[in-house]
């Protein structure tokens, strides 16, 4: 499974939407279910799945899925 697909599965699971198509543009601003609760759940799942660690500032600065893509591709 590619990183993109893995990340999509995380978003589908946390946002409870099996049909969600993950794009870098997906953001709390355009996805009503992506609130602060979901943000933490997504971050924790990404940390676990990809072996990365977000700093508090990085979590605070996440504006869209693009920021998460950037972290796992770093």
């Amino acid at each position: 499974m590619s990183k993109q697909e893995q990340l999509q599965e995380i978003f589908r699971d946390v946002l409870d939407n099996a049909l969600l198509v993950l794009t870098p543009e997906l953001a709390p601003a355009n996805c009503g279910d992506w609130d602060s609760v979901a943000m933490v759940q997504i971050v924790l799942a990404v940390e676990s799945a990809f072996g990365v660690r977000f700093s508090t500032d990085e979590v605070a600065d996440i504006k869209s899925a693009a920021d998460i893509f950037k972290k796992i591709d770093a």
Partner: peptide
């Protein structure tokens, strides 16, 4: 409050 950042900080 940046809820996600503070939550993440706490459980980390």
């Amino acid at each position: 409050m940046n809820g996600a950042a503070v939550f993440h900080f706490s459980i980390s």
